[in-house]
Design a protein around this nucleic acid. Structure first.
Lengths: 171, 171
DNA sequence: CCTCAATAGTTGGGCATCCAAGTTTTAGAG
DNA sequence: CTCTAAAACTTGGATGCCCAACTATTGAGG
């Protein structure tokens, strides 16, 4: 999802524009919140596009990359699908879908849970482990090391978003 | 997209967890950027879920709501599809899709451009204008007026994201 | 004028996410 | 020990977004 290839920049900030309209319609009390939500959506789309552009040549999407990293950071390199969904905060059906594709490309394998027959484990293959590392190095170099913000702002952003996430019950 | 219905909160911050793993793998220099990107993704998903939950009873999605508001704020209540795509920073195919659905539910009508026969205008119908207003009042009351952050943090967030968007060429 | 590149939209294919519903298995209540 | 609610996963359907390719129309040059 996402890309942006070459959409030209606008001559003004669309969020500010919207804020003015909100005020003009007597919705001034909600204008700030609207601006925050709109900014968040646009910024996420921009960042996701940058990330996906780096992962595409590696045959990965961000969703699948996240699954790989979760497995890489887990002790044995395997996790129940349900735990993956909890950690990434996505619907079980989305996990099934991601693991299907990772399995189809040989990056992950489904394994039965040793004691609970309801559960399926997703286990990293050697190829999966290798690609996860390679993808991370690419993302680190091309995106994470250059977030497009001063260091102080990055930290502020992380802190504010953490507050918001905590309040919303993310953790 | 998105919802979250009732996913239980995690006992820890997954972003902090990831940051620790990054440091442990010798990627400390990119850990902060990774944290920012991950936070942004999760926060966006949470907010989008709240927004969609409010719009669903009205038969709208956020994508279509954005189109309606853009038309509502345009002078005549109509715009070329190409302009909609530019403003919302989405692919032309996405605009076609959104307008198809809005047209199917009678909220918008396709009109030929008066002078340029390549261009199609999307024009708000009375029903579309009414629903856009109703939806905004619902969103203002249930989401925008309560962003889940202190006022100062909201403003900080908007400012930091604006910096990021400007740097990335959003405007 | 006429040719050809650029613009505007649409269509078809791929991926991601969600929801609802259905299956299998586990665990708790009586 | 049985019965039922909960948990884990999958499947089918809907929506959204993107890309590549194709049609139609416009506009700049020769």
């Amino acid at each position: 999802m996402t890309s942006m290839s070459s959409r030209a920049p606008l001559p003004f900030d669309p969020v500010e524009e919207a804020r003015r309209h909100w005020a003009a319609h007597g919705w001034a009390d909600a204008a700030e919140g609207m601006a925050a939500v709109t900014s968040l959506m646009r910024a996420q789309a921009i960042v996701l596009a940058r990330v996906e552009a780096v992962l595409r040549p590696l045959g990965l999407t961000f969703a699948r990359y996240e699954v790989l990293m979760l497995l890489l950071f887990s002790g044995r390199g395997s996790l129940p699908l349900s735990r993956i969904g909890e950690r990434l905060q996505v619907h079980p059906a989305s996990v099934t879908n991601a693991v299907d594709r990772l399995e189809a490309t040989g990056l992950v394998e489904r394994t039965p849970h040793p004691t609970d027959r309801r559960t399926t484990l997703a286990a990293l293959t050697p190829a999966g482990r290798e690609l996860a590392t390679k993808a991370t190095e690419a993302l680190n170099a091309e995106v994470f090391a250059r977030p497009g913000l001063p260091t102080d702002d990055v930290r502020t952003l992380v802190d504010v978003l953490a507050t918001m996430r905590r309040d919303a019950g993310d953790f």
